[in-house]
Amino acid sequence: MSTSTIDVAARRVPPFGGFNRTALAIELKRMLSNRRTVIFTLVFPAAMFFAFGTGSDTARSVGDGNVSAYILVSMGLYGAALTAAASGAMVALERSLGWSRQLRLTPLNPVAYIMMKAIVALSMGAIAIVVVNLAGLVQGKPDMPGTTWVASALVTLACTSTFAALGVFVGYVVPGENAMQILGPGLALLSFLGGVFIPLTHGSAIWHVAVFTPMYGVAEVARAPLTGELPWYAVVNAVVWLAVFVAGAAWRMTKDTARV
Protein backbone atom coordinates (compact mmCIF):
# COMPACT_ATOMS: atom_id res chain seq x y z
CA MET A 1 0.00 0.00 0.00
CA SER A 2 1.33 3.46 0.66
CA THR A 3 5.08 3.63 0.45
CA SER A 4 5.26 7.25 1.50
CA THR A 5 3.00 9.68 3.24
CA ILE A 6 2.58 13.27 2.16
CA ASP A 7 4.27 15.46 4.74
CA VAL A 8 1.53 17.70 6.03
CA ALA A 9 3.83 19.81 8.18
CA ALA A 10 5.95 20.85 5.17
CA ARG A 11 3.03 22.64 3.49
CA ARG A 12 2.93 26.40 3.57
CA VAL A 13 0.18 28.97 3.26
CA PRO A 14 0.71 31.58 0.51
CA PRO A 15 1.44 35.15 1.64
CA PHE A 16 -1.23 37.88 1.40
CA GLY A 17 -4.06 35.34 1.24
CA GLY A 18 -3.04 34.31 -2.27
CA PHE A 19 -2.99 37.88 -3.64
CA ASN A 20 -0.32 37.95 -6.35
CA ARG A 21 0.82 39.71 -9.51
CA THR A 22 0.55 36.73 -11.85
CA ALA A 23 -3.19 36.36 -11.22
CA LEU A 24 -3.63 40.13 -11.44
CA ALA A 25 -1.84 40.26 -14.80
CA ILE A 26 -3.96 37.41 -16.17
CA GLU A 27 -7.14 39.17 -14.99
CA LEU A 28 -6.11 42.39 -16.76
CA LYS A 29 -5.14 40.52 -19.91
CA ARG A 30 -8.56 38.84 -19.82
CA MET A 31 -10.41 42.17 -19.65
CA LEU A 32 -8.31 43.70 -22.42
CA SER A 33 -8.70 40.73 -24.75
CA ASN A 34 -12.48 40.90 -24.48
CA ARG A 35 -13.52 42.72 -27.63
CA ARG A 36 -16.88 43.80 -26.24
CA THR A 37 -15.32 45.31 -23.15
CA VAL A 38 -12.73 47.14 -25.21
CA ILE A 39 -15.26 48.58 -27.67
CA PHE A 40 -17.99 49.60 -25.26
CA THR A 41 -15.80 50.84 -22.46
CA LEU A 42 -12.68 52.19 -24.12
CA VAL A 43 -13.55 53.14 -27.71
CA PHE A 44 -17.14 54.27 -27.07
CA PRO A 45 -16.38 56.99 -24.45
CA ALA A 46 -13.62 58.43 -26.65
CA ALA A 47 -16.05 58.48 -29.58
CA MET A 48 -18.63 60.19 -27.35
CA PHE A 49 -16.05 62.85 -26.54
CA PHE A 50 -15.49 63.53 -30.22
CA ALA A 51 -19.26 63.72 -30.74
CA PHE A 52 -20.05 66.07 -27.83
CA GLY A 53 -16.75 67.93 -27.67
CA THR A 54 -16.79 69.51 -31.12
CA GLY A 55 -19.66 71.99 -30.72
CA SER A 56 -19.25 75.68 -31.59
CA ASP A 57 -19.08 76.92 -28.00
CA THR A 58 -16.40 74.45 -26.82
CA ALA A 59 -13.89 77.29 -26.54
CA ARG A 60 -16.04 79.22 -24.01
CA SER A 61 -14.26 79.41 -20.68
CA VAL A 62 -15.31 77.34 -17.66
CA GLY A 63 -13.42 77.82 -14.39
CA ASP A 64 -9.76 77.14 -15.09
CA GLY A 65 -10.30 75.94 -18.64
CA ASN A 66 -12.90 75.70 -21.41
CA VAL A 67 -16.09 73.84 -22.24
CA SER A 68 -14.17 71.22 -24.18
CA ALA A 69 -12.10 70.39 -21.08
CA TYR A 70 -15.36 70.17 -19.11
CA ILE A 71 -16.72 67.63 -21.60
CA LEU A 72 -13.40 65.77 -21.56
CA VAL A 73 -13.54 65.21 -17.80
CA SER A 74 -17.22 64.18 -18.04
CA MET A 75 -16.53 61.61 -20.75
CA GLY A 76 -13.54 60.30 -18.82
CA LEU A 77 -15.84 59.73 -15.87
CA TYR A 78 -18.46 58.06 -18.05
CA GLY A 79 -15.89 55.74 -19.64
CA ALA A 80 -14.27 54.86 -16.33
CA ALA A 81 -17.65 54.25 -14.66
CA LEU A 82 -18.77 51.96 -17.48
CA THR A 83 -15.49 50.06 -17.45
CA ALA A 84 -15.41 49.66 -13.69
CA ALA A 85 -19.04 48.52 -13.66
CA ALA A 86 -18.26 45.93 -16.34
CA SER A 87 -15.32 44.69 -14.26
CA GLY A 88 -17.51 44.53 -11.17
CA ALA A 89 -20.20 42.57 -12.98
CA MET A 90 -17.57 39.96 -13.83
CA VAL A 91 -17.55 38.89 -10.18
CA ALA A 92 -21.13 37.68 -10.42
CA LEU A 93 -20.59 36.17 -13.85
CA GLU A 94 -17.71 34.13 -12.44
CA ARG A 95 -19.95 33.04 -9.62
CA SER A 96 -22.52 31.70 -12.08
CA LEU A 97 -19.78 29.84 -13.99
CA GLY A 98 -18.63 28.06 -10.83
CA TRP A 99 -15.24 29.80 -11.00
CA SER A 100 -15.72 31.37 -7.55
CA ARG A 101 -16.38 27.91 -6.16
CA GLN A 102 -13.22 26.66 -7.87
CA LEU A 103 -11.29 29.54 -6.29
CA ARG A 104 -12.70 28.61 -2.89
CA LEU A 105 -10.83 25.31 -3.30
CA THR A 106 -7.55 27.23 -3.45
CA PRO A 107 -5.85 29.19 -0.67
CA LEU A 108 -7.18 32.44 -2.19
CA ASN A 109 -8.77 34.43 0.59
CA PRO A 110 -12.14 36.08 -0.30
CA VAL A 111 -10.76 39.46 0.78
CA ALA A 112 -7.71 38.99 -1.48
CA TYR A 113 -10.08 38.05 -4.32
CA ILE A 114 -12.11 41.22 -3.91
CA MET A 115 -8.89 43.26 -3.63
CA MET A 116 -7.71 41.83 -6.94
CA LYS A 117 -11.06 42.50 -8.58
CA ALA A 118 -11.07 46.07 -7.21
CA ILE A 119 -7.56 46.67 -8.57
CA VAL A 120 -8.59 45.28 -11.96
CA ALA A 121 -11.71 47.49 -11.99
CA LEU A 122 -9.70 50.59 -11.07
CA SER A 123 -6.94 49.74 -13.56
CA MET A 124 -9.53 49.39 -16.31
CA GLY A 125 -11.08 52.68 -15.16
CA ALA A 126 -7.64 54.30 -15.32
CA ILE A 127 -7.11 53.00 -18.85
CA ALA A 128 -10.50 54.41 -19.89
CA ILE A 129 -9.58 57.81 -18.42
CA VAL A 130 -6.22 57.77 -20.17
CA VAL A 131 -7.83 56.87 -23.49
CA VAL A 132 -10.38 59.70 -23.28
CA ASN A 133 -7.68 62.16 -22.25
CA LEU A 134 -5.48 61.04 -25.13
CA ALA A 135 -8.46 61.62 -27.42
CA GLY A 136 -8.67 65.12 -25.97
CA LEU A 137 -4.97 65.75 -26.53
CA VAL A 138 -5.15 64.53 -30.10
CA GLN A 139 -8.20 66.67 -30.85
CA GLY A 140 -6.51 69.68 -29.23
CA LYS A 141 -9.61 71.66 -28.18
CA PRO A 142 -9.66 71.01 -24.40
CA ASP A 143 -7.75 73.66 -22.53
CA MET A 144 -6.90 73.60 -18.83
CA PRO A 145 -3.72 73.86 -16.72
CA GLY A 146 -1.68 70.65 -16.57
CA THR A 147 -2.20 70.28 -12.81
CA THR A 148 -5.97 70.60 -13.26
CA TRP A 149 -5.80 68.01 -16.01
CA VAL A 150 -4.00 65.52 -13.72
CA ALA A 151 -6.10 66.38 -10.64
CA SER A 152 -9.36 65.81 -12.56
CA ALA A 153 -8.12 62.46 -13.82
CA LEU A 154 -7.14 61.30 -10.32
CA VAL A 155 -10.40 62.46 -8.72
CA THR A 156 -12.33 60.75 -11.55
CA LEU A 157 -10.48 57.51 -10.85
CA ALA A 158 -11.41 57.71 -7.16
CA CYS A 159 -15.06 58.24 -8.11
CA THR A 160 -14.89 55.10 -10.26
CA SER A 161 -15.00 52.82 -7.20
CA THR A 162 -18.70 53.72 -6.78
CA PHE A 163 -19.43 52.08 -10.12
CA ALA A 164 -17.22 49.07 -9.52
CA ALA A 165 -19.42 48.40 -6.48
CA LEU A 166 -22.55 49.07 -8.56
CA GLY A 167 -21.30 46.53 -11.10
CA VAL A 168 -20.84 43.86 -8.43
CA PHE A 169 -24.29 44.65 -6.99
CA VAL A 170 -26.12 44.54 -10.35
CA GLY A 171 -24.10 41.49 -11.39
CA TYR A 172 -25.41 39.57 -8.42
CA VAL A 173 -29.01 40.74 -8.83
CA VAL A 174 -29.11 40.10 -12.59
CA PRO A 175 -27.40 36.82 -13.32
CA GLY A 176 -25.03 36.00 -16.15
CA GLU A 177 -24.20 38.12 -19.16
CA ASN A 178 -27.38 40.18 -18.83
CA ALA A 179 -25.78 42.44 -16.22
CA MET A 180 -23.98 44.52 -18.86
CA GLN A 181 -27.17 44.83 -20.89
CA ILE A 182 -28.66 46.64 -17.91
CA LEU A 183 -25.52 48.48 -16.81
CA GLY A 184 -24.79 49.86 -20.30
CA PRO A 185 -28.07 51.68 -21.01
CA GLY A 186 -28.58 52.27 -17.28
CA LEU A 187 -25.33 54.15 -16.90
CA ALA A 188 -26.02 56.13 -20.10
CA LEU A 189 -29.41 57.18 -18.69
CA LEU A 190 -27.90 58.08 -15.33
CA SER A 191 -25.21 60.05 -17.13
CA PHE A 192 -27.83 62.10 -18.99
CA LEU A 193 -29.73 62.66 -15.74
CA GLY A 194 -26.58 63.45 -13.78
CA GLY A 195 -25.37 66.11 -16.20
CA VAL A 196 -22.46 64.14 -17.57
CA PHE A 197 -23.43 64.47 -21.22
CA ILE A 198 -25.40 67.73 -21.18
CA PRO A 199 -24.81 70.38 -18.48
CA LEU A 200 -27.80 70.91 -16.21
CA THR A 201 -29.40 74.30 -15.65
CA HIS A 202 -29.21 75.02 -11.95
CA GLY A 203 -32.70 75.16 -10.40
CA SER A 204 -34.52 73.66 -13.41
CA ALA A 205 -37.09 70.92 -12.97
CA ILE A 206 -34.69 68.24 -14.20
CA TRP A 207 -31.97 69.57 -11.91
CA HIS A 208 -34.19 68.92 -8.85
CA VAL A 209 -34.38 65.28 -9.86
CA ALA A 210 -30.78 65.02 -11.04
CA VAL A 211 -29.20 65.99 -7.73
CA PHE A 212 -30.49 62.75 -6.22
CA THR A 213 -29.15 60.45 -8.97
CA PRO A 214 -25.83 58.57 -8.62
CA MET A 215 -23.95 60.21 -11.52
CA TYR A 216 -24.63 63.77 -10.43
CA GLY A 217 -22.44 63.79 -7.32
CA VAL A 218 -19.39 62.08 -8.80
CA ALA A 219 -19.62 64.25 -11.94
CA GLU A 220 -19.55 67.43 -9.85
CA VAL A 221 -16.69 66.06 -7.74
CA ALA A 222 -14.68 64.93 -10.80
CA ARG A 223 -15.05 68.38 -12.43
CA ALA A 224 -14.37 70.31 -9.25
CA PRO A 225 -10.63 70.78 -9.99
CA LEU A 226 -11.66 72.42 -13.28
CA THR A 227 -14.76 74.38 -12.27
CA GLY A 228 -13.41 75.36 -8.85
CA GLU A 229 -16.85 74.90 -7.31
CA LEU A 230 -18.22 71.97 -5.38
CA PRO A 231 -21.68 72.23 -3.80
CA TRP A 232 -22.06 70.38 -0.50
CA TYR A 233 -25.01 68.32 -1.76
CA ALA A 234 -22.87 66.96 -4.58
CA VAL A 235 -20.37 65.62 -2.04
CA VAL A 236 -23.20 64.15 0.04
CA ASN A 237 -24.64 62.56 -3.12
CA ALA A 238 -21.29 61.00 -4.05
CA VAL A 239 -20.63 59.62 -0.55
CA VAL A 240 -24.17 58.31 -0.05
CA TRP A 241 -24.29 56.49 -3.39
CA LEU A 242 -20.85 54.96 -2.78
CA ALA A 243 -22.10 53.70 0.59
CA VAL A 244 -25.35 52.39 -0.94
CA PHE A 245 -23.61 50.44 -3.71
CA VAL A 246 -20.86 49.04 -1.47
CA ALA A 247 -23.49 47.97 1.07
CA GLY A 248 -25.62 46.44 -1.70
CA ALA A 249 -22.68 44.55 -3.16
CA ALA A 250 -21.54 43.34 0.26
CA TRP A 251 -25.09 42.28 1.15
CA ARG A 252 -25.56 40.24 -2.03
CA MET A 253 -22.11 38.69 -1.74
CA THR A 254 -22.47 37.53 1.85
CA LYS A 255 -25.88 36.12 0.99
CA ASP A 256 -24.34 34.36 -1.95
CA THR A 257 -21.23 32.83 -0.36
CA ALA A 258 -23.48 30.97 2.05
CA ARG A 259 -24.43 28.80 -0.92
CA VAL A 260 -21.09 28.58 -2.76
Binding site: R11, V13, G98, Q102, L105, T106
Partner: peptide, 19 residues
Protein backbone atom coordinates in the same frame (compact mmCIF):
# COMPACT_ATOMS: atom_id res chain seq x y z
CA UNK B 1 -7.24 24.06 1.76
CA UNK B 2 -5.07 27.12 2.46
CA UNK B 3 -2.07 24.80 2.97
CA UNK B 4 -2.69 23.23 -0.45
CA UNK B 5 -3.44 19.86 1.15
CA UNK B 6 -6.88 19.40 -0.35
CA UNK B 7 -7.97 19.62 -3.96
CA UNK B 8 -11.21 18.72 -5.65
CA UNK B 9 -12.47 18.10 -9.14
CA UNK B 10 -16.03 19.10 -9.78
CA UNK B 11 -18.11 17.56 -12.48
CA UNK B 12 -19.06 20.71 -14.36
CA UNK B 13 -18.24 24.39 -14.43
CA UNK B 14 -15.37 25.91 -12.54
CA UNK B 15 -13.60 27.12 -15.66
CA UNK B 16 -13.33 30.47 -17.40
CA UNK B 17 -14.01 30.08 -21.12
CA UNK B 18 -11.99 33.11 -22.16
CA UNK B 19 -8.74 31.97 -20.51
Amino acid sequence: VAHGLVAAVMQTGGLLKDL
